[in-house]
Design a protein around this nucleic acid. Structure first.
Length: 327
DNA sequence: AAAACATGCAAAG
DNA sequence: TTTGCCTGTTTTC
């Protein structure tokens, strides 16, 4: 379910609560027993997201004779994967602080100082596209619920992974192989470098721009909602071949993605309509049907011109656009 | 109550 | 090209 913004938030959560801690790893479901055994007993050294994928590096296992290299965990949540955190939290993520480029790790402390009113309380936090916090009224550690592929446990925080499309242990070379296949991510790459790579990859192909934006090797992190919304905001027809999109429009698309991703990571939702205030903003926060221009609105009147929103299949995914605004 | 559907991807056939 | 992932929400019977 998650697009890029939520994976960055999850990586932040790991950075805040797991990095620097020894992790006990297990696979209650039984489908990742070997991988969990490799990770268990190691310290998480760092965690970051690139596009929709999350990478966490674990240090040397001091108890394993001859071990001298770190190992990496790679996770892709797919369409309904989720991380369930439980333990002592001071706050939900995303309510304070700037989540701009390069601020992922440094901001963690600032956030703590801003929100340290009140003692940490034990809670449960589900992180998928949407986040939901609930009370934790069990003993410690809590029983895994459902099919938990991987459980990472520290002294006071636990993270349960369910339903991922990818979950594997890699060495550094394996991580690089994956990273090489991924296009630029505004929260990872220098903005100018990322833009150059995006335009290089998008402007040379005859493939429809609607398809290129979903291609994770062209730009990483955009999914079906951001795709539809970015194209509407650019007033660009999704079927326009990449090599026929004016360069300044591609430039605008990249900048818009930089902006939307920043908002998404900060707010924790894909807010794609600018300038909402008051009740309209609250409604948008609350309900996906109120926060997009065209996504999920087939047949409903365009919010800008009233024309019914079109729906078609592109690469087995639903594509929404306004046939008038995006002629 | 049951079925359909979803903000992806990888592996199998 | 089809299936698996295996959950949560919405729609249909």
């Amino acid at each position: 379910m998650p697009e890029g913004h939520s994976v960055h938030r999850i990586a932040r959560q790991f950075t805040k609560h797991f990095v620097g801690r020894i992790c006990e790893a297990s696979s209650p479901q039984g489908r990742f027993v070997e991988g969990a055994a490799v990770l268990s007993g190691r310290e998480m050294l760092r965690c970051f997201a690139v596009g929709k994928q999350m990478f966490a590096e674990f240090g040397d296992d001091p108890t394993a004779p001859g071990a001298d290299a770190s190992v990496w965990l790679r996770v892709h949540l797919g369409i309904y994967g989720a991380w369930d955190f439980a333990g002592d939290f001071t706050t939900k993520l995303g309510q304070t602080g700037e989540y701009g480029r390069g601020a992922r790790i440094e901001d963690a402390d600032a956030e703590d100082s801003l929100s340290s009113i009140g003692a940490p309380r034990r809670a449960r936090l589900r992180m998928a596209e949407q986040e939901k916090e609930t009370e934790l009224d069990q003993g410690w550690p809590p029983e895994p619920v459902g099919a938990v592929r991987l459980r990472l446990l520290t002294e006071d925080v636990v993270a349960d992974l369910r339903g991922p499309t990818a979950c594997e242990v890699l060495d550094a070379a394996g991580v690089n192989t994956v990273l090489d296949r991924l296009g630029p991510d505004p929260l990872v790459d220098e903005l100018e470098v990322g833009e150059r790579r995006f335009i290089e990859r998008a402007s040379k192909r005859r493939v429809p721009i609607g398809q290129l934006l979903m291609d994770q090797s062209v730009v990483a992190g955009i999914g079906n909602i951001y795709r539809a919304e970015i194209l509407f905001r650019a007033r660009l027809n999704p079927y326009t071949p990449g090599n026929e999109v004016p360069l300044d429009v591609l430039h605008g698309i990249w900048n818009d993605w930089v902006k939307l991703l920043g908002v998404g990571v900060e707010v924790g939702r894909m807010m794609t309509i600018d300038g909402l205030t008051g009740d309209d903003y609250e409604a948008a926060l609350q309900d996906v049907r109120h926060r997009h221009w065209v996504y999920g609105r087939a047949g409903e009147p365009c919010r800008r011109c009233g024309t019914p929103i079109s729906l078609a299949e592109m690469q087995n995914r639903k594509l929404y656009w306004c046939p008038s605004c995006q002629a």
